[in-house]
């Protein structure tokens, strides 16, 4: 237990609440235990046996918050605990605090500006203005390779060239993820926010996509301080058919029977307003604010001793 960390966390949350109160964004709460789970292929939910059947602990409040948006809530934010199975390390704890917010009528570019304002207010030693770079340019800059065009063989050769030893075959996107985490992110400037945007369209999740320089890209961004990923934002996909398709495709790829959130899809049928949204890992923001390198230093009791 580190008293300074507790105090800094309390101050950070106060600042966040003032930030949104000044902008007229409403604080909301949604259930943490849901009858449906997250179907994202790389995020695993904890399940809980309840008196009324199996439920899943949310990995982000995205689905119920979008139900609120579809019901006409307007701008909303939520500061809550979320859970992700098997994510543990210096920058991961299976239970962590997320700040998620949605701005109706915002473009993802506007949202990136607002995210920068919030983070500059939360991390006092940040002075340099943020850097905005596309997924493609970031790969070109650090690896001289276009991630939209390069195939598995080329990506694997590039990994080898950069001293990464990994056995066996992987799908295309896993090779991109490998290079992103091992080479691209690590080259981000340590004293400046980096907004990485326009992911390959296959990585859109529930973000809109568009064609740019002959490639379909997702209107999705991630924000980093140095190599530390802090948040993931979208121009929210409002087309219910496309959202349904992605959820079903992911659920099928998982093959573990996790149910698609039909209430979420039904709400989208009634019309999700055009909006942009983001989820930020607040424990990591606190790490940056306190300039420490291990999540354990900012959590009262980490997973191992919880």
């Amino acid at each position: 237990m580190n008293l300074t960390a507790l105090q800094e966390r309390a101050r950070l949350y106060q600042q966040v609440r003032v930030f949104f109160a000044e902008r007229g964004v409403l604080e909301v709460e949604t259930p943490a235990l849901s009858q449906a789970g997250n179907t994202d292929p790389f995020i695993d939910s904890f399940s809980v046996n309840t008196g009324s059947g199996l439920r899943w602990l949310h990995t982000s409040p995205e689905y119920p918050m979008k139900r609120l948006l579809a019901a006409g809530s307007g701008d909303i934010y939520q500061l809550c605990k979320v859970w992700r199975k098997d994510e543990s390390g210096r920058r991961h704890n299976p239970e962590f605090t997320m700040l998620e917010w949605y701005r109706v009528g915002f473009s993802y570019h506007q949202l990136m500006q607002e995210v920068a304002e919030l983070l500059h207010g939360s991390i006092p030693h940040l002075h340099k203005p943020p850097r905005f770079i596309t997924y493609r340019d970031a790969f070109l800059e650090s690896l001289q390779l276009d991630p939209h065009i390069a195939d598995e063989t080329l990506l694997a050769a590039c990994a080898r060239e950069h001293g990464i030893h990994i056995d066996g075959d992987m799908p295309l996107q896993a090779w991109r993820d490998l290079l992103l985490t091992h080479c691209v992110e690590t080259a981000f400037p340590p004293d400046q926010l980096t907004f990485l945007y326009h992911y390959p369209a296959s990585q859109s999740a529930l973000a809109k996509v568009h064609e740019s320089d002959g490639q379909w890209v997702a209107e999705r961004f991630e924000v980093y301080l140095g190599a530390l990923e802090l948040g993931n934002g979208y121009q929210e996909q409002t087309d219910v058919t496309r959202n349904r398709h992605i959820l079903q495709q992911d659920a099928q790829a998982r093959g573990d029977g996790i149910p698609v959130d039909e209430r979420f899809l039904a709400a989208l049928e009634t019309g999700l307003p055009e909006c942009a949204g983001i989820a930020i890992g607040m424990d990591r923001v606190l790490m940056c604010r306190m300039q420490v390198t291990d999540l354990k230093q900012v959590i009262a009791f980490s997973w191992e001793v919880a």
Partner: peptide, 25 residues
Amino acid sequence: FVKPGKGQAFTRCRVRNLKTGRTIE
């Protein structure tokens, strides 16, 4: 442990060969 928010997770290790003493990633 490294993982992009929406992607493949990896465990990135440095390992020492117990026969040669050489360390690799």
